[in-house]
Amino acid sequence: MNQTANSGNSTEPMISLSGVGKWYGAFQALDNINMSVAKGEKIVLCGPSGSGKSTLIRCINHLEAYQKGDIHVGGIMLGHGSKTIDAVRREVGMVFQQFNLFPHLTVLQNCMLAPMRSLGLEKAQAEDRARTLLERVKISEQAEKYPAQLSGGQQQRVAIARALCMRPKAMLFDEPTSALDPEMVKEVLDTMIALAEEGMTMICVTHEMGFARQVADRVIFMASGAIVEEAPPAEFFSNPKHERTRKFLGEILGRH
C-alpha cells in the first residue's frame, strides 16, 4: 500500500545497513551489520538476550548512536545531525516492549500529539486520522480513556495505532509481546499480522516463532552482536545451518 507517492526508486531497499558497528566502551554491541530490507518485506530478528537485536533496530531510528557504517532509510541517509534523524523518525514507526504510552494523555491524545507537533496537522485532521487508526486496531471505543485504564494488550494496540498515525513507511517492533500476559499476546500479534498483510515494511524483534513462520519473509538470527544466519522461515526452522542457531531454536521451541 503506497501511502506516500514520493518513496524514491522502488528497487532501492527501504532500509539498508552497511558495515554498522557499535561499541559501549570496549564492549562491541554490533559487529559489522549488513542488511537490506525491501519495501513491503517482513523481517523477524531473533537471538539470545544480549545478542544486539534490540540495539540494532534502535540504531535504525537513531535511538542509539552507532560509530561505524551507514544506515539508509527510505532513501535518506541517517547522519548524526538532528535534521536527518528527524526525517528518518518521521518515516519509521516504533513499538516498544513496555508500550511507552504517555500516561497523562488519553488514548486519542496519544495518537494526535505527534501528527500535530511534528507533521503540522490541524487538530481536526489529526483526530480524524487517530480515530481511523484506532478503529483499525479495534480499540476505537477506548479513545477517551487513559492508558492506565487499559489492559496491556490494548495499550500495545494503541501504541501501534499511535505509530501508524505518522503514516510511516516502515515499522520497527522491539519485543512487542514480551511484557504481555499470555492471553493478550494473540490480540497484538493479530494486529501485527493484519498490518503485515496490508504490505507494511516491518522489522520485528520477537521470540514468537509462530508469528515468524506465518508472516516473515526472512528470519535473521543474531548472536554476540553479529548476524549469524538468515533464511526464509521454512528453511530457518527446518534446516538451521549454524550450531548456535540450532542451540537457540532448541531452547526456544523446546519450551513449548
Partner: peptide, 27 residues
C-alpha cells in the same frame, strides 16, 4: 520520568521543545 517516555517521543520525531512541554514536564 521513565526513559521510555523520551524514547517514545523521539521515535515519533517530536523535537526537544515538544518532548519537554508535551511529554516529560507534565509528568
Amino acid at each position: 520520568v521513565p526513559r521510555g517516555q523520551t524514547e517514545a517521543a523521539k521515535a515519533l520525531s517530536l523535537g526537544y521543545v515538544s518532548r519537554m512541554k508535551d511529554v516529560v514536564l507534565p509528568q
